[in-house]
Design a protein around this nucleic acid. Structure first.
Lengths: 347, 347
DNA sequence: GCGTCCCCCTTGATCGTTCCAAGCACGGGC
DNA sequence: GCCCGTGCTTGGAACGATCAAGGGGGACGC
């Protein structure tokens, strides 16, 4: 029994061929075609060849919905996109998302984007989860107090976080993160090697664990080298203006010769202050940022910056997801990757 | 017959409730529950209330795969993400993608990301299309010679393009685009109003229709005001370095007092040259970019730039997609939106 | 020649939802 | 009290794939 519309030479879009259509053409059963696609080893070479030809000729591709229904799998990975913050320099997600999409494709998965209600951050996850629309999630914004990771863990939903669980109360779950302290350590040691001794820190407010982590890298490295840190640290909002103001105050009060910043955004503020004071970045005062964002690369005076290995992060996340979905017990909860330092003219 | 695992108080993830489970609980049939979800008007208020309570209590959400299979619909919109180009300033896609995701969500759709083989740009589309994994596509990179739009049109696949069909050979299809010429016209008239008469153009090579469109806006506006253009235009690669070099040459040979650029990337190059020559952007020489990228906003001397209404583009695209999927004959093929000018210190 | 085993393939059932057509209850009209 | 139309509700079928068994044929050993 072949479907009528596939026969008619109509101009209407014909429905794509099904497993049964291919089976009929190849003179085998449905299951054999299915095996040809999913378990080629089970077929005799001759049969396999014949089925493959039929598949090729008819342009057959398995219907996703039917397969999803039967296997209780969607081959989709959910990723929540958070609102765009204009004015900050972190166009960093682009790089991550692209690699994630590419890597997942290799593992046979696609990436599904969804937005979150800001009032109910969990709603988006809940919907997709209950309707079995996605197999797993990638959670990116794991700042302290974000309930998503804990909620997902409690629901026993498969997910991997980009970011460590800062809160001890969070149930254990797989995560991949970048060692921020190692990054600022790289930056600080680079500056020390260049002969700097008065190296200032401009970071975020104290309630950001990520910020504190990055600050610790600077602090311990300075201490290890017996260098002073008192009066050389400042905590501000993550904006260009705040960074500039902090740099101005530090320059006036503590006379640093170099700045390590918790973000490229803050570093841009520092560069702005240097510009106003006719100081040449890299020659008079060194500046190092964090994230290696596009501004760092495009800015006339290239900004030295700590670069997160986002490509590797994506690969590790997909690996962890794959293990999770295969129900393999994870070897370890988390993976901590080390960033690199991209040296440009500003240092 | 209720599923056993839903009864057991096991720690294993229980499969979510189905339509039948809800029906049993509410004391109605499957179809009634389905109607309560999809056509509430068909139910008597009392029944509707009862079913809704059951749905709420059990946390029911329709299984996506089953629904997709039956309705031959996936509620997914495919979007190809192109490789990240480091060094260019176009973090512009972020804004677009986010609005697209948000707007589609309102229409009940999700966004599926996929990558394309660079060698076979059509492969990714073909796979998703044949496996009925997506309902429609949004095509973003519609540069001349890109076969995707034409191929999709030929396949009668539903899609909306962000970008005009520059090639007349392309079959007709819905599109949404931003009027680049109107943008550079805004920029040029802004500079003329500021008293500039020697306004230079730095754009892309001739084979880019988008670049030619933007160039035309500058050219016609200059002509309309009886201003000179000879020796004031240059065409280069879209890199910071090329923009800087072009600016240097133009400054030496034609003494312009203002620059209109085809991109923020090129404008950054111009700013760099000004920096090297100790010229103050905005006071000595005016500069206008295109795209209002993050560098334009973060750069110490704010860069005046043409801003594309990406949010509106996304809304229009979703509207067109909705019409397309409802088989409503589109009122018109394309929608052309007008950009705005964000004036900052550089002009 | 016959039974046994194994490999390769086929058949029927199933996933959870929506479509279809028939069933039943309720109420009005006579 | 009976008939009939309207409207909510119902069981059966279908979407297209995979899972779980069942069956047929050839090779091999006795």
């Amino acid at each position: 029994m072949s479907r009528p519309e596939a026969r008619l030479g109509t101009h209407l879009p014909v429905s794509p061929p099904t497993l049964a259509d291919v089976a009929e053409r190849a003179g085998v059963s449905r299951q054999t075609v299915s095996n040809a696609v999913n378990n080629p080893d089970l077929l005799r070479p001759g049969t396999l060849e014949r089925v493959r030809e039929a598949i090729e000729e008819m342009g057959y591709s398995p219907n996703r919905a039917a397969r999803n229904l039967r296997t209780r799998t969607s081959q989709l990975i959910g990723l929540r996109v958070s609102p765009v913050q204009e004015g900050t320099a972190n166009a960093m997600m682009d790089r991550f998302v692209h690699t994630l999409v590419e890597t997942s494709a290799l593992a046979g998965h696609h990436v599904l984007l969804f937005t979150g209600d800001d009032e109910d951050p969990v709603a988006g996850y809940d919907n997709l989860l209950r309707s079995t629309a996605v197999d797993a999630f990638v959670v990116t914004d794991t700042y302290l107090g974000n309930p998503q990771a804990a909620w997902l863990a409690q629901q026993r939903a498969p997910f991997v976080a980009f970011g460590r669980p800062w809160d001890r109360a969070d149930a254990r779950h797989p995560w991949v993160d970048v060692d921020g302290a190692a990054g600022t350590r790289l930056a600080t040691e680079h500056l020390i090697a260049k002969g700097h001794t008065r190296i200032a820190w401009i970071g975020w407010r104290k309630d950001s664990p990520i910020g504190e982590d990055r600050r610790a890298g600077w602090l311990t490295t300075m201490h290890e080298h017996g260098l002073p840190t008192t009066g050389l640290a400042s905590r501000v909002e993550d904006t260009v203006q705040s960074g500039g103001e902090a740099a101005a105050v530090l320059l006036d009060e503590s006379a640093p010769t170099a700045f390590v910043c918790a973000s490229d955004t803050l570093a841009m503020g520092v560069l702005h202050t240097l510009w106003l004071r006719q100081l040449a970045p890299g020659r008079d005062i060194a500046v190092v940022g964090f994230d290696d964002s596009q501004v760092a690369q495009v800015y006339p005076v290239g900004l030295t910056s700590v670069r997160q290995p986002l490509e590797e992060v994506a690969v590790q996340i997909v690996t962890a997801l794959h293990a999770l979905l295969s129900h393999q017990p994870p070897a370890e909860d988390g993976v901590l990757l080390t960033p690199t330092l991209v040296v440009r003219q500003s240092s």
